Amino acid sequence: MMDLRSAFEDHIKQLADLILKLSSELRSGLRPAYDNFMGFFHAIDWTEPWLRGLMAFHVALLIVAILSRKHINFQMFLFLLALGGVYFAERLNRILGDNWRSFASQNYFDPHGLFLSSLWSGPLLVTAIVILINSLFSLCYLIVRWKRAELRHRARLSQNKQD
């Protein structure tokens, strides 16, 4: 019994040490990420017209996706459009990187595509996820309707057999 108790206490001590290490890493690990995000945020000139237009486009696309939630075919078109935009993001980054002087005050389009991933692909993926979740809810609703119709049909058949 004493061996079991000492093994249990050792296990609790190890678990407490792991939790302390994890919490200290999380506390120190989130600060650099926050600093990097704030540096990225402040490096962008949010008053540029093309950036405002891009943000307005994403907001409008999300609103259209939410308002058209009962039109499944249109939603699938928007879903494919959003995923197509993400697919062509690398090419778009290259084209915009070559021609940034014609519309921007600085070159935001690095070879790794961080800027375009954050401000183009990220919002498109959020819209695609909203559409996907709506499609799953619609599918669940259709399955329930189908099952109810099947049960009503079986009830009519059994009632006709009894008559």
Results as ranks from 00 to 15, higher is better:
Phe37Asn: 07
Phe57Ala: 14
Leu80His: 06
Cys140Met: 12
Asn160Trp: 00
Asn36His: 10
Asp98Phe: 01
Leu136Gly: 08
His153Glu: 14
Ile95Trp: 13
Ser158His: 09
Asp35Ile: 14
Val64Cys: 11
Lys161Trp: 13
Leu61Gly: 02
Glu90Gly: 08
Leu80Thr: 04
Ser135Pro: 00
Gly29Phe: 07
Met2Val: 15
Gly122Met: 07
Phe79Ala: 00
Leu151Trp: 03
Ser105Gly: 14
Asn93Glu: 11
Arg69Gly: 01
Met1Lys: 05
Ala155Gly: 01
Leu15Met: 11
Gln75Gly: 07
Phe115Asn: 12
Gln106Ile: 12
Asn99Ala: 08
Leu142Asn: 11
Phe137Thr: 01
Glu25Pro: 03
Asn73Gly: 02
Leu157Gly: 01
Phe8His: 15
Phe37Tyr: 15
Leu67His: 10
Leu139Ser: 10
Ser118Ala: 13
Leu116Lys: 00
Pro111Phe: 03
Ala128His: 06
Arg154Ala: 14
Leu157His: 06
Ala60Arg: 01
Met2Asn: 13
Gln14Val: 09
Gln162His: 08
Asp3Asn: 12
Glu150Ser: 05
Ile143His: 02
Leu114Lys: 11
Leu83Tyr: 01
Ser68Cys: 14
Ile12Thr: 14
Leu67Lys: 15
Asp45Gly: 10
Arg5Met: 08
Arg27Tyr: 09
Gly84Cys: 02
Leu30Lys: 09
Leu151Tyr: 03
